[in-house]
Amino acid sequence: MITDLVLAIFCIVFVPVLGGFISGIDRIITARFQSRVGPPLLQPFYDVIKLFGKEKVVVNVWQAFCAYCYIAAASISIVMFFFKSDLLLILFVQAVGAIFLVVGALSSTSPFSQVGAHRELLQILSYEPLLVLVVVGMYLEVDSFKIWKIYEWNEPLILKLPFLFIVLGYALTIKLRKSPFDLSTSHHAHQELVKGVLTDYSGPFLGLIEIAHWYETVLVLGLCSLFWATNWIGGFILVAITYILEIIIDNVSARMTWRWMLGYVWAMGITLSVVNMVWLSLV
């Protein structure tokens, strides 16, 4: 009981720190790709602490409520992940949080925030089915939705589910807000929609959303690591390679439209999943 509580508190405190470092490394590598020096490693933390010191300005109370719900759902899903619980449940809790972010943006009348919210909904619509397909693929292999079952499996899942790992890559790119799927908001200057879905969140609430985003980053990278769950080093290398590929893709591609995203991601995602599942049932 006590150890469970300690583990829960540990992941609530430690995971954002990890997420912040990942985002700091991301910004430095991105800057190097653009032949710039880039910000210091701790820059994401400076930004968030500064945001907490800003004046509280909310468009209406629902926006603040939604920001709290978003971070609550994100932190609950990561705690469940660390407790090796049910993958489907984790996905649905995470999806609830993502929806609250959209509802908060929709509660303001700003056209930028409205269009950003619609695009965010379309992004959720694109990646959630893929995540469910990935989890179903894992179920077909290990016969359970529980994460601890996957950790007990004696060979890396990526050997049996290589195409599903690519499918997860699509979901990861959308979730990390990387080009070509950074439609609703992006880490870089976002010209056509100001800051999209985040336009009307400001000050401490933007800080909360940033921290929630770190939780989600760690969650999706954690899902990646499940594909090599037999030992820590393999999982770490897999996640590191995947993340560096994400940064490269982010830097070499342009932002696309939502129609292209929905068509392409569903077509590729569903095809690759079906191919992988058929292959799984044949061997």
């Binding site: 032949s35 020096v37 880039g38 400076y46 800003k54 200057a189 976002h190 010209q191 009307d200 400001s202």
Partner: peptide, 21 residues
């Protein structure tokens, strides 16, 4: 631009008054 690269100091051009300092 890369010549001056103010992001070294954490400076970002946000284009949104709600986020700006």
């Amino acid at each position: 631009t890369p010549v001056y690269d103010v992001e070294r100091f954490g400076i970002i051009n946000v284009g949104n008054p709600m986020h700006a300092d």
